[in-house]
Amino acid sequence: MEQHIQAPVTREKIENLKAGDYIYLSGTIYTARDAAHKRMQETLDQGKELPFSVKGNVIYYMGPSPARQGRPIGSAGPTTASRMDRYTPTLLDMGLGAMIGKGKRSQEVIDAIIRNKAVYFAAIGGAGAILSKCILSSEVIAYEDLGTEAIRRLEVKNLPVVVVIDSQGNNLYETAILEFCTGGNK
């Protein structure tokens, strides 16, 4: 099913999403990848506040290439989500609504998704040029010294993503493969 979703996201909206749904996401989202997650965890360990409230928000695992003059951003596709798995359950328990990345998640993350009624979207890996066209603006809001790994606030319009793990824990990566598998993967 195709749906249009506005970010930040409400729990009610999230609960209506099913693994396999094709989503056009619009609104405000935040980027964070490896180094930013590590720093956010350190910030929390020190009892300090994160640079943005994760509650109901969407994190896009993405580190863009530099923007050419007159453009909001460079190439901007998803990075592999599993590298963030170690940090993700904490953020989900703090109210993070959704994540956009690519690739498998750990059981701990899936459990935290179910527990908090969150959702994991996949964007198309390696489609950074086309995805950059959905980003209207980009602003570094924290950790500027990390370069491409800084936290950015993005305004996006109709960013195409697919629901991979829904709030009930259904996992498209597992179910979709079975449909097309002809041999040894079953």
Partner: peptide
């Protein structure tokens, strides 16, 4: 042929 029979598909979302 064997790899394409795994069903992983484009983006890992299922396919040939």
């Amino acid at each position: 042929e064997k790899i394409n029979g795994l069903g992983i598909g484009p983006g890992g979302l299922g396919g040939t």
